[in-house]
Write a protein that binds this DNA or RNA. Structure first.
Length: 473
RNA sequence: GGGCCGUUAGCUCAGUAGGCAGAGCAGGUGACUCUUAAUCACAAGGUCAUAGGUUCGACUCCUAUACGGCCCA
């Protein structure tokens, strides 16, 4: 028998003993009156409290025993002694293992060393833990186990818990900002018969009753614009999207973004909105507009730089081009590889990714994109090869994408047709024919935003259960 | 998809020009009624990721595979 089995067998042994003592090792509801943090914040000697949590450390001392209990607010020490519990209950207390859940009723006091502690009068077994936890001092380091068994990561690595609390606050604050500004939160289909709104490979599924193929959404864009057609002038959806593409430190197959649409606005309004949202979140969660991210200092406070895509190319490659026709030539000169069938917009994007993107540390709006890679965006009045679109970059990463929405159904049909996509979304075109008011639309990557605020290197660190290849047991 | 790196006890990590597999924590037994990475004593715990190969002998060298990480596409 190996050691793991031995530890587990020993815990099953204790389970038996508890049952023999008439104690349910998997208890039920327990009324609490306080928690670890509140007890410390409002310290009062001899105050009676009831708390519950998981034992994360034990120090046995003969006829006394110290333990640390972890609950969602933090941890607190508890002190059990023979004199207070009597022989039977003290011996049951010493049967506790690290990992067990207990409920405790007792009086608050301070130890000689000054640590606020709960002296146990009574305790209730809530759940027996049958599996040993990772080591207390070094925690759980193995990244694979941390991702696969996030619950153990959360139990032993407090900074992981803090990170996901932070993630929740960021999302809460975004909602708060938008709701205060009269935006309506909506939900649109995740299963779509024609995947649209972004050029990404979708996941396919099948609906048995309807007998049709469906796709998990790559973007909620088309549905949200239909809602603006319907008169919902300011809408947003915090949405999970699914893209059947590679996995990297910046890509998870399912990821969270927010899309926001505002009628009668355009992309410059969306720039203002983007800046206001992110500054609001930064102030609310950290009180600062200065962020340290992976050794880089990011300044959110100064007005965010806005430069056109071609200006950015010029600034970082030193090469000036006047029209898209010169792009492939420039790519060859800059030794950027591309496929013959790729269009000028795609090639420009390669150059941008190589020369510009990594340098955009402070928030920067890259403005005006080629129409050929932006089929849903409104063309610029004076230059039909370009659209009113921007992307937001922070810390060398794309954080957001927005445009003045194309609301001309006739042009939209033509633009779809030049895309040579397999299927045109007639429902969407029909909606445009009813009339989409001039509208600004914006998408922000929530996972990447959280990465920046949490100083996380990999997107897997800000997703509770990142996608991994399943293991066979 | 390509390159590099990793996989040793439940956890965190050592290890050897190729020659009996090591520690701390956790777990077990005992001592201890204010400890806090508690302390002290004793005993236990291993398919060295998996499958092959080289060798008298492989955790160590080679090949393949699995899973993960980093970088690149």
């Amino acid at each position: 028998m190996n050691l793991a089995d031995e530890i587990i067998r020993s815990r099953y042994g204790k389970l038996e003993k508890l049952l023999n003592e008439g104690i349910d090792p998997f208890g039920s509801k327990y009324e609490i009156t306080s928690n670890s943090k509140e007890i410390k914040d409002n310290f009062k000697e001899e105050r009676r409290v009831r708390i519950a949590g998981r034992i994360i450390s034990l120090r046995q001392h003969g006829k006394a025993c110290f333990a640390n209990i972890k609950d969602s607010k933090g941890e607190i020490q508890v002190y059990a002694k023979y004199d207070a519990l009597g022989e039977k209950y003290f011996s049951i207390f010493t049967m506790l293992d690290i990992g067990d859940f207990i409920g405790i009723s007792g009086l608050v006091f301070k130890t000689r060393k000054g640590e606020i502690t709960v002296s146990v009068d009574e305790f209730t077994f809530l759940t027996k833990s049958l599996h040993p936890l990772p080591e207390k001092y070094h925690g759980l380091r193995d990244v694979e186990t941390r991702y696969r068994q996030r619950y153990t990561d959360l139990i032993v690595n407090n900074e992981v818990t803090n990170l996901f609390v932070l993630r929740s606050s960021i999302i809460y604050k975004i909602r708060e900002f938008l709701n205060k500004n009269d935006f309506l939160e909506v939900e649109t289909p995740m299963m779509q018969s024609i995947p649209g709104g972004a050029s990404a490979r979708p996941f396919e599924t099948y609906h048995n009753a309807l007998g049709i193929k469906l796709f998990l959404r790559v973007s909620p864009e088309l549905y949200l614009k239909k809602l603006v057609v319907g008169g919902l002038e300011k809408v947003y959806e915090l949405n999970r999207c699914f893209r059947n593409e590679g996995i990297s430190t910046k890509h998870n197959p399912e990821f969270t973004m927010i899309e926001i649409y505002q009628a009668y606005a355009d992309y410059s309004d969306m720039m203002d909105l983007t800046e206001r949202i992110i500054k609001f979140v930064a102030k609310e969660i950290s009180g600062s507009l200065d962020i340290d991210y992976q050794g880089k200092n990011i300044k959110l406070d100064t007005p965010w730089k806005r430069i056109t895509l071609l200006e950015a190319i010029k600034e970082y490659t030193g090469e000036e081009i006047k029209s898209l026709d010169e792009i492939k030539e420039l790519a060859v000169k800059l030794k950027i590889e591309f496929q013959e069938e790729e269009n000028e917009g795609e090639v420009l994007d390669h150059i941008f990714g190589e020369y510009v993107e990594p340098n955009l540390i402070d928030p920067t709006f890259i403005v005006d994109y080629p129409a050929i890679i932006s089929p849903l965006a409104k063309k610029k009045k004076d230059s039909p090869d370009w659209v009113e679109r921007f992307e937001l970059y922070i810390a060398g990463q794309e954080l957001g994408n927005a445009y003045s929405e194309l609301n001309d159904p006739i042009e939209q049909r033509e633009r779809f047709q030049t895309q040579k996509k397999e299927k045109i979304d007639e429902d969407f075109l029909l909606a445009l024919e009813y009339g989409l008011p001039p509208t600004g639309g914006l998408g922000i990557g929530i996972d990447r935003l959280v990465m920046i605020f949490a100083n996380a290197h990999s997107i897997k660190d800000v997703i509770l259960f990142p996608q991994l290849r399943p293991i066979e047991y």
